[in-house]
Design a protein around this nucleic acid. Structure first.
Lengths: 191, 191
DNA sequence: TTTCACAAAATGAATGTTCATTCATTTTTA
DNA sequence: TAAAAATGAATGAACATTCATTTTGTGAAA
């Protein structure tokens, strides 16, 4: 089946990102990992560039889908916040390859201009929540960029530190401290 | 002079990071940019890998030196915080190439294990300040990793957004909002 | 059910290009 | 004039992509 093979190739790249790192990946390895011949990749993708870009699209779709699932439009913002943060962090903890791929993708030479534009696509779910929180006077009236950076930035750094064994983000106590700290950074103080 | 040429080569790489991007850089280009022959590079560096690693060392040294200069051990923490944040942000704003180099370096295949270990070297100045602040009961008693992530993470994200033209970090009003937000995230509330 | 013909899919060896590195030769320095 | 420094053409390895060939799938006819 055509779609199976396409997926197998994409997943192959992803596995390799973890095992050998983004820039040691070559088409022969991808082929081997996916269980196809090198030439076969070119039946499904125009070339390496398209392959990488499609993979990025796949990850964005999967990640955003996951995080948005945790967003309860009717419940309290604070609950949605917790659920979404957990979802995002756990997603990356379980998919280190997704994380390092996304990190590396930004500066990869494969990047089309069109993608560069939507390079903050992965922030859309957070952005959405911020807006709602601002309206409800629960979240500080700061520029969107600042609010986004106060959630996305720390998550990124924490994950990097986790994968560098500087901290253990799998511990729920650590997660809680971290989520709370970020919330306090963006929430209006109710004392 | 030997050191001049070494520096010229390192600076050449840096300029090229900006102009063509990390992964399009080849030794011929570096040579041309530095005004030497390709072979000359090998008189000063063992190879591309060493060249890249030395450059990282150079940047870390320069950056940390700059930021630590702003640290006044005798004055109030809050002032040091502001001065250091400003120093760090302005440094990267004026040296986009440094920023993108550091961002890309983490996942580059050149990275020796020994460097990977000290990959958070760039956080040492912040770390130092956190410690002092905790002692003075000015900064929250959170795990170091969390505190670090609440300052370093947002800075990274803001800079990325700035360079992607999503926000203008050169505006002092934006800088102030951002510095204050990060401070509130880590400081003990005095209300 | 088996056979055959044709198309679609897949293969992987061959190709051409890019590029890090080397080293015989030349230039500079002291 | 001899040593040190610099040069850049030559080398060879790595690797994306191509394409002539092989394999697999499909369905009509026997």
């Amino acid at each position: 089946m055509a779609q199976d093979k396409k997926q197998a190739i994409l997943k192959g790249v992803l596995k390799l990102v973890n095992r050998v790192g983004f820039y040691h990946i070559n088409m022969k390895m991808v082929a081997q990992e996916a269980g196809v011949a090198a030439g076969t990749i070119y039946l499904y993708f125009k070339g390496k560039e398209e392959l990488i870009n499609e993979l990025y699209k796949m990850i964005v779709t999967e990640f955003n889908g996951n995080v948005l699932e945790a967003y309860d439009h009717d419940g309290p913002i604070r609950d949605s916040y917790n659920a979404m943060m957990t979802q995002a962090v756990v997603f990356y903890l379980n998919n280190k390859d997704y994380f390092s791929f996304v990190e590396q993708y930004t500066y990869a030479p494969f990047l089309f201009k069109e993608y560069q534009e939507q390079n903050f696509t992965l922030l859309l779910p957070i952005y959405k929540m911020m807006r709602a929180g601002k309206k409800q006077k629960l979240i500080k009236n700061l520029p969107d960029a600042v609010l986004l950076s106060m959630v996305h930035g720390p998550m990124n750094t924490m994950l990097k530190m986790h994968f560098a064994h500087k901290v253990d983000l799998t511990k729920t106590s650590m997660q809680k401290k971290f989520y709370d700290a970020c919330w306090e950074a963006i929430a209006i103080d109710k004392k």
